[in-house]
Design a protein around this nucleic acid. Structure first.
Length: 967
RNA sequence: GCCGGGAUGGCGGAAUUGGCAGACGCAAGGGACUUAAAAUCCUUUGAAGGGUAACUUCGUGCGGGUUCGAGUCCCGCUCCCGGCACCA
C-alpha cells in the first residue's frame, strides 16, 4: 500500500487549481457573489507560519464558498510603498522597487506552496503608477470637495539624518536610526479633513453589527466624543479666551486659566516680567514633548503669564498660566481650571498655590474634621458619642492626640457644628471638610465659598497658629493633613454650591441648565468636541505616492488636471534619506491654469492613503479609465468578510471608513461602510530563549527541556512572544512543509486554537496534525476495496446499529463543520468534529460487516469537509476513491435532517441538583415532559434515591434532563 | 487612571440558548510489535477516598447571591492580556 507521500501529492496538485481557473472571479456577476478580503500585506522579506494563519483562513473560506456555488472574489495585492523598502534600498544601494519586487515574488511562491489561492489577475501593488494614479485621483477629488487642505504643523525633524521623521520612526522619543532626539519643526503639511466625519464615523459604528466589539470600542475611544460647552473668558487686554469644558456646571469654581504653551495668545498676555520665564518654559516644553508626555504621573509644570482674565459668571479676576498638560491639539488649546473638581487642576493648584473653591456638593454626604488637642475639653468625645458621630483617636505629630471625626449627612454635620461652637476653646478653630466646607471660629463660622473667604479664613488661621502661614491657600493647608486627602477633591456630578443663582441646582440638571443659561447670556454655548483630529498625510519621503498639487505664484494651489495623472515618481539613482524636494528638477513644472512657471508639491502621501481605497480597485483592477466602476463596486461592496490583524483596528479601518463616506458624498459609490463583517485574527507566538549574556538564542541551540544557556550555563529567560526575527523565534514554513507538508501546516494552524486569540505554536502540536493525516490516508487507501460505487448512498433500512450510528455521525459532522466554518469562525472545533467522525469511522471499517454504500457516503463526506483545511491530500484522495472531477466542482455536502434524530436519547436525572442516573428513553418520550418525568421516577436508581423521602418538585426539560427535589 | 477581553486538567483548548464539565489534540504512564530504537497500534490519564468494575466527595481565579440546576446570569474582589492615556 502507498504511504502518505505528502511531497509528491502536494507537487501534483500545486498548480492544478489555478490552471483550472477555480479562483478567477467574474465581477460582472450579479447573483450569488461573495467578497472575501484579507488585509493586504506589506511585502516584507519573509513569511513565517504566523503570517500563514491569515491566508489559510481566507483560502479555507473561499474554498467552502466556491463549493457552495458562489461567485467568490478573494484578491491579493501589496501595500508596497513605505519606509522599510526605502531603508532597505539605501542599505543595498538599489531601488526600492527592486527590493519590493523580490519580496513579492517570494510571498507569491510561499502562497503557492501553502496552497493558498488568489485571483492573480487582480493583483495590485500600491507603488505602481497604474495604482497610485488613482490614489492621486482620490486626493484631487478630496481636494475639490474641500476635504484636503494645507496648514502649518509641527513635525519631528532629525538634525543628524537631516530629514523629517514620520511618527513611526520616532521610537522611544529618539530617531530610530541614529538615536537622536528629534526637533519639532513647523512645516506646511497636507491634511484630510476626517474631523468633518467624526460624528458619522461614530454613529455608523452601531450599524457594524458583525464587527468585533473591541474594535468598535477602540474606534469609539479614538474618535472620543465629549459633550460640553465653550465658554469665553475675557483677558485684561480685551482678548477673548475661549475654553472647552465638559463641566460648565463647575464654572464658578474656575479660579485660574491654563493655556497650552504654543497658544497664540500667550505672547499678548505675557507681562514683561514674565516674558523670559515663558520663553524658557515654551522652549523646554517643545523639546521635552515626546519623551515626557509618555509619563502621565509626572509632576505638573507651568509658568504664570502675568496676565489675568475675568471669569464671566462671577466676575472674579483669574490668573492665566501656561502649562504643558494643556494640549494645543485638543479643544481650544485653553482651559478653565476648576481645581476642586478636576484631578489635574487640583495637582497644579496645590503645587502653585492657586485657590481651590469647591462648587459641587459631594453625593455621599461624607465630611471629616480633625479636632486638635486642647481645642476642646476632655468631655468632647462623650458629646460626640451621644450624637453617634464616629471618631478615632490618633496622634497629631508632637501636638498630642487628636480626634479624627467622620460624619455622614447634613443632620450629623449640623449637630457637630453646633456642639463645636459651644465647646471650642478660645484661640482655636475647627474645620469641617467634604460635604460641607465650614470653619468654626470663636466668634463666627465661615464657609469656604469663594476666593475672598479663602483669603479671610487663611488669615484668621494664621493669626491663631502662625505655622500655617506657609500655606498659600486654605486647601493647601488642609492638604497637609493626609486624613483629609480623599475629601478635598471629587469629579462627580452633584448639587451645585457656591454658584450664585445656580446654587442648589441638582447634579442631573446642572450641566444642561448652565449651558443653556450661558447661551442666553452670550457667554458660551453647548458644544461637542472630538479627540480625533485631522489626518496628516504629508510625508517628506521618496517612496510614496506624490501629492498631485502644483503651487503657482499667480494662481496659488492648483491640482494636477486628472488627464495628466499620474504624477510619476522620478526615476533616480539618488533616493532614500532625502525626499522629492531634494531631487533636482522634480519640482519644476508649469501651472496648468496660467501656463507660467510653477512648483510641484514635493510631499508624498502617507501609505494609509494607499490602503484606504484598495478594496475598491480589486473590482476593476485593470481599468485604465477610472479607479473603479460604480456599477460593479455597488454590487460587490461592502466586503462580505474582511480579515486582518487587530493592530489595524483603529487607523486603517477608520481611514477606510472615512474615505468610503467621502466617496459616497461625492457620488462615486452607493454605500457608506466598506466592510460588512470584520474578523481580527490573533497572533501566533513561539517560545523565545534569552540568555542574560548571549541575548536571544535560536530554539535549535537550546537542547530540549533545558533551561540554561548552552554557551555559559546561565539561566535562560524563557517565554513566548509573537514571532519576530529579532527574538529568533520564528518558525520557517519551509521547515514545516519539508518535514510534514503544507496540508499538515494548514491543519495544525486551524486546529491550534480559536482564531481570534493569540496562540503558541508548538512542535508537538504539529506532529499531532501530521499523525491525523497519516491515519486518514491509511484508512481510506486500505478501505478502497470495501468502497461502494461512486454516487451510492447508504440505505438506512439495511444498516445495523453501529452503521446507523456512523451514518448519524456523518451528517451531524457535516452540520457542525458547516456552521463552525461559515457562521462561527470556529475552525478548531470544526477540525475536532472531523477527528471525531474519523474516530468512529476507523473502527467501523475493521469491525466485521461493512456497508459499502455507507462507507462510500462517509468517506466522500470526510474528504469533502476536510478539503478546505487540507486541499492537497483531499484532492488526491478524491481521485483515488474513484472520482474524476475536482473537489472544487463538488457541492459542499448537505446533511439529512433524519440523521440528526436519534431513536433513543440518554437523559440525565438529577436529585437535589446532583446527577444520580442516566436513563435511556425513546425519542418520543424524551420530548414529552410528563412521560419523561414518569420514566425518570420509574428508574431503579432513582427509586432507591427517593426511598423514604418526599418528592417536592419534579422538573422535566424535554430532550434535556429531569431534575427532582426531595426532602 | 479609563475602556475592552480573559482566567477551565500537566499543556492548547471544548461545552453554541442556564441543563451530563473536561470534546478534540498534545504530553505522560502501561502494554503490543522490534535484537534495539523510531514509527505504528492497543490502553490508562481532573483530584481525593482501602479505589483501573458500576460507589462517594471535591472540582471551571477568589468571596457572596439568584435558580430545581451556574464554567455560563447578578453583586463584590484578585491577577493576566490588549487599547487609550495630562483629551479639559
Amino acid at each position: 500500500m502507498d504511504a502518505y507521500d505528502f511531497s509528491a501529492i502536494e507537487a501534483r496538485w500545486r498548480d492544478f487549481w489555478s490552471e483550472r481557473g477555480f479562483f478567477q472571479t467574474d465581477t460582472s456577476a450579479r447573483e450569488g457573489t461573495y467578497y472575501y478580503l484579507n488585509m493586504f500585506p506589506y511585502p516584507s522579506g519573509y513569511l513565517h507560519v504566523g503570517h500563514g494563519r491569515n491566508y489559510i483562513i481566507g483560502d479555507l473560506i473561499t474554498r467552502v464558498k466556491i463549493m457552495r456555488g458562489l461567485q467568490v472574489l478573494n484578491p491579493m495585492g501589496w501595500d508596497a510603498f513605505g519606509l522599510p523598502a526605502e531603508n532597505a534600498a539605501i542599505e543595498n544601494n538599489t531601488h526600492p522597487w527592486t527590493f519590493t519586487q523580490k519580496n513579492i515574488d517570494n510571498a507569491k511562491e510561499q502562497f503557492r506552496i501553502w496552497g493558498v489561492q488568489f485571483d492573480w489577475n487582480r493583483e495590485l501593488a500600491t507603488c505602481l503608477p497604474d495604482y497610485y494614479k488613482w490614489t492621486q485621483w482620490l486626493f484631487v477629488q478630496l481636494y475639490k470637495a474641500g476635504l484636503a487642505y494645507k496648514k502649518k504643523a509641527t513635525v519631528n525633524y532629525c538634525p543628524t539624518c537631516d530629514t523629517v521623521l514620520a511618527n513611526e520612526q520616532v521610537v522611544g522619543g529618539v530617531c530610530e536610526r541614529c538615536d537622536t532626539p528629534p526637533e519639532p519643526r513647523d512645516l506646511e503639511q497636507w491634511f484630510f479633513k476626517i474631523t468633518n466625519y467624526a460624528q458619522r464615523l461614530l454613529d455608523d459604528l452601531s450599524t457594524l453589527e458583525k464587527w468585533p466589539d473591541n474594535v468598535v470600542k477602540m474606534q469609539e475611544n479614538w474618535i472620543g466624543r465629549s459633550e460640553g460647552a465653550e465658554v469665553t473668558f475675557v483677558a485684561e487686554t480685551g482678548d477673548p479666551i475661549t475654553v472647552f469644558t465638559t463641566r460648565p456646571d463647575t464654572l464658578w469654581g474656575a479660579t485660574f486659566m491654563v493655556l497650552a504653551p504654543e497658544h497664540p495668545l500667550v505672547d499678548k498676555l505675557a507681562t514683561d516680567a514674565q516674558r523670559e520665564a515663558i520663553a524658557t518654559y515654551r522652549d523646554q516644553a517643545a523639546r521635552a514633548s515626546e519623551i515626557d508626555r509618555l509619563s502621565t504621573d509626572r509632576e505638573k509644570t507651568g509658568v504664570f503669564t502675568g496676565g489675568y482674565a475675568q471669569n464671566p459668571v462671577n466676575g472674579e479676576k483669574v490668573p492665566v498660566w501656561i502649562a504643558d498638560y494643556v494640549l494645543m491639539t485638543y479643544g481650544t488649546g485653553a482651559i478653565m481650571a476648576v481645581p476642586a473638581h478636576d484631578e489635574r487642576d487640583f495637582a497644579f493648584a496645590i503645587k502653585f498655590g492657586l485657590p481651590i473653591i469647591p462648587v459641587i456638593d459631594r453625593t455621599d454626604g461624607l465630611a471629616k474634621s480633625v479636632v486638635f488637642p486642647g481645642s476642646v475639653d476632655a468631655d468632647f468625645a462623650h458629646r460626640l458619642d451621644a450624637l453617634h458621630i464616629d471618631y478615632e483617636r490618633q496622634p497629631l505629630g508632637d501636638l498630642g492626640e487628636g480626634l479624627f471625626v467622620t460624619m455622614h449627612g447634613e443632620a450629623q454635620i449640623d449637630k457637630y457644628v453646633e456642639v463645636m461652637r459651644e465647646n471650642l476653646a478660645p484661640g482655636n478653630w475647627n474645620e469641617i471638610v467634604g460635604a460641607r466646607w465650614l470653619f468654626v471660629f470663636n466668634d463666627t463660622v465661615l464657609e469656604l465659598d469663594g476666593t475672598a473667604s479663602d483669603r479671610e479664613i487663611l488669615a484668621r488661621c494664621k493669626a491663631i497658629y502662625p505655622p500655617v502661614g506657609k500655606n498659600r491657600t486654605v486647601m493647601e493647608m488642609l492638604n497637609g493633613l493626609s486624613f483629609y486627602r480623599n475629601v478635598l477633591f471629587h469629579a462627580e456630578y452633584g448639587t451645585m454650591i457656591h454658584s450664585g443663582e445656580f446654587t442648589g441646582t441638582p447634579g442631573d440638571r446642572a450641566k444642561a441648565d448652565v449651558s443653556q443659561w450661558l447661551e442666553t447670556k452670550n457667554i458660551g454655548r453647548a458644544t461637542i468636541n472630538f479627540r480625533l483630529h485631522d489626518w496628516l498625510i504629508s510625508r517628506q519621503r521618496y517612496w510614496g505616492a506624490p501629492i498631485p498639487m502644483i503651487h503657482c505664484e499667480k494662481c496659488g494651489q492648483v491640482p494636477v488636471p486628472e488627464d495628466q495623472l499620474p504624477v510619476l515618481l522620478p526615476e533616480t539613482e539618488f533616493i532614500g534619506k532625502m525626499g522629492l524636494a531634494d531631487i533636482p528638477g522634480y519640482a519644476d513644472t508649469t501651472c496648468p491654469e496660467c501656463g507660467g512657471p510653477a512648483k510641484r508639491d514635493t510631499d508624498t502621501m502617507d501609505t494609509f492613503v494607499d490602503s484606504s481605497w484598495y478594496y475598491l480597485r480589486y473590482i476593476n483592477p485593470q481599468d485604465a479609465t477610472r479607479a473603479f466602476a460604480r456599477s460593479d463596486v455597488d454590487h460587490w461592496l461592502p466586503v462580505d468578510q474582511y480579515v486582518g490583524g487587530v493592530e489595524h483596528a483603529i487607523l486603517h479601518l477608520l481611514y477606510a471608513r472615512f474615505i468610503t463616506k467621502a466617496l459616497y458624498d461625492m457620488g462615486h459609490v452607493g454605500f457608506t461602510e466598506p466592510f460588512a463583517r470584520l474578523f481580527t485574527q490573533g497572533m501566533v507566538c513561539h517560545t523565545a530563549y534569552k540568555c542574560p549574556d548571549h541575548g536571544w538564542l535560536y530554539p535549535k541551540e537550546v537542547s530540549s527541556g533545558a533551561t540554561t544557556c548552552p554557551k555559559c550555563g546561565k539561566d535562560l529567560d524563557i517565554s513566548s512572544f509573537k514571532m519576530s526575527k529579532s527574538k529568533r523565534n520564528v518558525v520557517d514554513p519551509k521547515d514545516i512543509v519539508d518535514h510534514y507538508g503544507a496540508d499538515t501546516e494548514r491543519l495544525y494552524t486551524m486546529f491550534m486554537g480559536p482564531p481570534d486569540r493569540d496562540i503558541d505554536w508548538t512542535d508537538e502540536g504539529i506532529r499531532g496534525a501530521f499523525r491525523f493525516l497519516n491515519r486518514v490516508w491509511t484508512l481510506i487507501i486500505s478501505s478502497l476495496d470495501q468502497l461502494g460505487a461512486v454516487g451510492t448512498k447508504a440505505n438506512t433500512a439495511e444498516l445495523d446499529e453501529s452503521a446507523l450510528s456512523l451514518w448519524r455521525r456523518v451528517h451531524r459532522t457535516i452540520k457542525k463543520v458547516s456552521e463552525d466554518i461559515e457562521e462561527r469562525f470556529s475552525f478548531n472545533t470544526a477540525v475536532a468534529a472531523i477527528m471525531e467522525l474519523f474516530n468512529e469511522l476507523s473502527p467501523y471499517t475493521s469491525g466485521g460487516t461493512v456497508d459499502a454504500a455507507l462507507l462510500r457516503e462517509a468517506i466522500d463526506a470526510l474528504v469533502l469537509i476536510l478539503s478546505p483545511f487540507t486541499p492537497f491530500v483531499c484532492e488526491e484522495l478524491w481521485q483515488r476513491t474513484g472520482h474524476t472531477d475536482s473537489i472544487l466542482e463538488q457541492p459542499w455536502p448537505s446533511y439529512e435532517d433524519a440523521a440528526l434524530e436519534q431513536d433513543t436519547v440518554e437523559i440525565p436525572v438529577q436529585v437535589n441538583g446532583k446527577l444520580r442516573a442516566r436513563i435511556t428513553v425513546p425519542a418520543a418520550v424524551a420530548v414529552d415532559a410528563a412521560a419523561l418525568k414518569d420514566a425518570a421516577l420509574a428508574n431503579e436508581r432513582i427509586q432507591a434515591e427517593l426511598a423514604g423521602k418526599n418528592l417536592i418538585k419534579a422538573i422535566a426539560i424535554p430532550g434535556k434532563m429531569v431534575s427532582l427535589v426531595v426532602k
